[in-house]
Write a protein that binds this DNA or RNA. Structure first.
Length: 494
RNA sequence: GGUUUCGUGGCCGAGUGGUUAGGCAGCGGUCUGCAAAACCGUGUACAGCGGUUCGAAUCCGCUCGAAACCUCCA
């Protein structure tokens, strides 16, 4: 029995080489994947959704290919500094101060909300979701290793990574394409009277001021871990010194991932990651959507339609479909028009999935090329997870289904099965889309609807169009759409 | 300024050295009591200017325009 990964040669775009590379796991069939998760100090917005959905798609597809995936996505609840390191205040702590809450209360509050949003988007939970605050010891141990290796220095209770020294033996900039000379010229002014030897050195442990509430004891005094330590430490802990995939948003490429590579390389003696994958940004009027720019929309805003820029509410599945309609490395531009197009398209997709069950099967039916569509979907996914092309393939299946229904044609039994499998595998399993209240499969409701539809049919038979139109209009007011066909009437939620 | 990208028809978005992406919207038709849905048909798109080539939207150069990163950020 062969596994699907033997039949499918997966190619991924590796940021490290800026090329598409054939994906070969270190320990086939096991795959380790680490993705940077959210900093839980605010509600999730569209950008979080894109990152989560991108790597959910990858997680789902790798599993579909029969790989055994350990997917680690962290929760950042300490460490990221708000301003320059010297007077930085922990992001979580700052929020806590403002709202007079315990920092961990803030963390819990937004973590729960994040999970709820991700569930709504049908994003699978990762295999492990470690919190930075729960891995202080691991981070301290790693900092010690970096110090022992001579690539960091301690000053006044803080520890800084020595980028210049690192660059003598390795290449700081290997991921982002930056040159250290450029960094020097860019950061010289900022360096000032800093504790750092160089402006571009970064803190791996930060001394906590008296007033700082989030603090842990360490060999260098009370403090908290630096920006990039948690991912290095937790990635190493759960996936090993070297693992297959590391993902995150493109905005994390520098300095976060660049620094992660430096830390892990020094601490473990080898480059930590084989394939670096980065999802692109969602833009609004061509500009990145982001908290700091004040143009970010929370997912709850979108799901409820509660935002000045929104013409209406958009369901989680509409958002998911919208995001999957673009390849993950492209920017994706937000607009009401685009969202409404996505909404309609997705409903059409699911309506056809329902219609499939009504198709007739016949041993003598002409072949319709279902296998070719299926192959196109695999080819698309194997080419750096090209979900828009998968969706195009699925729409080909939609056209096939609807046209057969329209002419009352039939399918070969094998193709009928394969079509079912195609839609189930790709639409449901890989793309992770699920029918919302689109189709009429609600048991009691469906039974009631059949009665109403029958009454309307009888009215139409009597040419009592006043009654039949009244029924249709009243149902329309309830967002129920009637679809008259050759052999009867179907219904669905609008 | 440096680094990394991008510029595709009304909108969103794939793709790519020669063959229809796809969705939404529009237009024409079929069906329908009328609609809707569905089906069929329908688009002189690839920023501009040069170059390479039998052939480029796809490769190269330049110009113009836009973005991300260089500070926390998906």
């Amino acid at each position: 029995m062969s596994n699907r990964y033997n039949e499918n040669k997966l190619v991924v775009f590796n940021t490290l080489s800026r090329k598409k590379e054939v994906f070969i796991p270190l320990k086939n069939p096991h795959i380790g994947m680490y993705v940077c998760g959210p900093t839980v100090y605010g509600d999730a917005h569209l950008g979080h959704a894109r990152a989560a959905i991108t790597f959910d798609l990858i997680f789902r597809y790798l599993q579909h290919l029969d790989y055994k995936v350990r997917y680690v996505r962290n929760i950042t609840d300490v460490g990221h500094l708000e301003n320059d390191a010297d007077e930085g205040e922990d992001k979580i702590a700052q929020k806590a101060r403002l709202e007079e809450l315990e920092p961990m209360e803030v963390v819990q509050f937004y973590t729960v909300r994040y999970h709820r949003n991700m569930d709504q988007l049908n994003v699978l939970r990762p295999s492990i979701e470690p919190h930075a605050s729960g891995h202080i010891i691991e981070q301290i141990e790693m900092i010690k290793k970096i110090l022992d290796a001579g690539f960091a220095y301690a000053v006044n209770g803080s520890v800084y990574f020595d980028v210049e020294k690192y660059n003598q033996s390795y290449h700081y900039g290997i991921l982002s394409g930056r040159k250290i000379e450029d960094l020097i010229s860019n950061t010289r002014e900022l360096a000032g009277q800093s504790e750092k030897h160089n402006g571009f050195d970064f803190a791996i442990w930060k001394n906590a001021e008296e007033s700082h509430i989030m603090r842990w004891p360490s060999p260098w005094g009370d403090g908290f871990p630096g920006w990039h330590m948690e991912c290095s430490a937790m990635g190493c802990k759960y996936l090993g010194d070297q693992f297959d995939i590391h993902g995150g948003g493109m905005d994390l490429l520098f300095p976060h991932h660049e620094s992660e590579i430096a830390q892990s390389t020094v601490a473990n003696g080898k480059a930590p990651v084989r394939y670096w994958l980065h999802n692109n940004m969602i833009t609004l009027n061509g500009q990145k959507m982001g908290k700091s720019l004040g143009n970010a929309m929370s997912l709850d805003d979108i799901f409820t339609g509660n935002h000045p820029l929104l013409e209406k509410a958009y369901s989680p599945m509409t958002i998911r479909f919208f995001i999957l309609q673009a390849q993950y490395r492209s920017t994706l531009d937000f607009s009401n028009e685009a969202l409404q197009a996505a909404e309609k398209g997705m409903k059409k997709l699911f309506a056809a999935y329902e219609t499939l069950n009504q198709l007739k099967v016949d041993m003598n039916a002409p072949p319709m090329g279902v296998a070719e569509i299926r192959k196109a979907c695999y080819d698309a996914m194997n080419d750096d997870f090209n979900s828009p092309m998968v969706i195009a393939g699925l729409f080909e299946a939609v056209r096939l289904i609807n046209s057969l229904k329209a002419v009352e044609g039939s399918l070969l039994p094998d193709e009928f099965e394969l079509l079912h499998k195609l839609l189930h595998d790709f639409l449901i399993d890989v793309l992770g889309l699920s029918a919302e209240d689109v189709a009429g499969d609600h048991g009691l409701v469906d039974g009631l609807m059949q009665t109403i539809i029958q009454l309307r049919q009888e009215a139409r038979g009597r040419k009592d169009f006043t009654t039949s139109d009244l029924i249709r209009n009243r149902l329309g007011d309830l967002n129920i759409e009637l679809k008259d066909g050759k052999d009867g009437t179907d219904w669905q939620m609008k």
